Lab assay of single mutants.
Amino acid sequence: SASLEDVKTAVLGLLVILQTKLYTLPASHATRVYEMLVSHIQLHYKHSYTLPIASSIRLQAFDFLLLLRADSLHRLGLPNKDGVVRFSPYCVCDYMEPERGSEKKTSGPLSPPTGPPGPAPAGPAVRLGSVPYSLLFRVLLQCLKQESDWKVLKLVLGRLPESLRYKVLIFTSPCSVDQLCSALCSMLSGPKTLERLRGAPEGF
């Protein structure tokens, strides 16, 4: 439990870093931090981490990651405290083949985003970082199938509809809506759902 406290501190630090690096160059920093966060949550489900502190780590990670939004130009952003989304000039939600690297070039400044813009690109060529939603999407499927803490599952179920409104997140990387529907149906009809959940409301 003591070591998990250190892990929790590290994860919180990564969330803060991602919130900053999403809007700064090099964009590969945001890509790497995002991948680290998603990989860490995957390990929770792989090794069945069920301690309360592990659940709190997942809760905080999902609470942040499910706020990711994308505009029509595929640029990622996060809402501010007033709910207004600021889109990044440097990070996009497109999935890119590994051989192309985590970044790609664009020939010049991008068109203005639909929300308040981030800082304008400084040079004639900007390297865009790929932060594909499919990585998070796979972890969300694991959550629906394996999550043991009701608070975490409730958060994910509550945030998913709003995330799905931003269709560009889903359609720019390999996210299977069929698998999502299947996971939701299995969660509702499967007898093991109630068996594994802690803290579920009576009558769920």
Rank of each mutant, 00 (worst) to 15 (best):
F171T: 15
K8R: 12
A10K: 00
L43D: 10
E5Q: 08
Y133V: 05
S55E: 12
S39K: 08
Y133S: 04
L15A: 11
T24E: 10
S111P: 11
S102N: 11
S186L: 08
H40W: 01
H74I: 02
I57F: 01
L135V: 11
R196H: 07
S107N: 13
L18E: 02
Y23L: 06
R127P: 12
R127V: 08
I170N: 03
K151V: 14
S186P: 02
Q146V: 09
H47F: 11
P52M: 04
Y23C: 05
E35S: 13
R159T: 04
L135G: 15
T9Q: 11
T20L: 05
V85C: 08
L18H: 01
Q19H: 08
G118P: 12
Y133H: 06
K192L: 08
L25F: 12
L43T: 14
Y34V: 06
L135Y: 13
H74L: 03
C91E: 03
L14W: 00
M187W: 04
T20P: 01
K46A: 14
L164Q: 01
L184R: 00
S186H: 10
V33F: 01
V11D: 01
T9C: 11
S148Y: 11
L25R: 13
E195N: 10
V38C: 09
S186V: 10
S107I: 11
R69M: 02
P26F: 02
E99Q: 11
S3I: 06
V131G: 04
L184A: 04
L22T: 03
L153H: 01
S39Q: 13
Q142L: 10
S130P: 06
Y34D: 02
L169H: 05
G83C: 06
Y45Q: 01
V84I: 13
V16E: 15
F87L: 04
W150G: 01
P113K: 13
D6I: 01
S189H: 13
E103A: 10
K167A: 05
L68N: 03
T106L: 13
T24Q: 15
L18Y: 05
S88G: 04
V168Y: 06
I41R: 01
T172E: 04
V11I: 09
D82N: 11
P89Y: 05
S176G: 06
M96S: 10
K167Y: 04
L197H: 03
E147W: 00
G129F: 08
I17R: 02
D149L: 00
E195R: 10
Y95R: 09
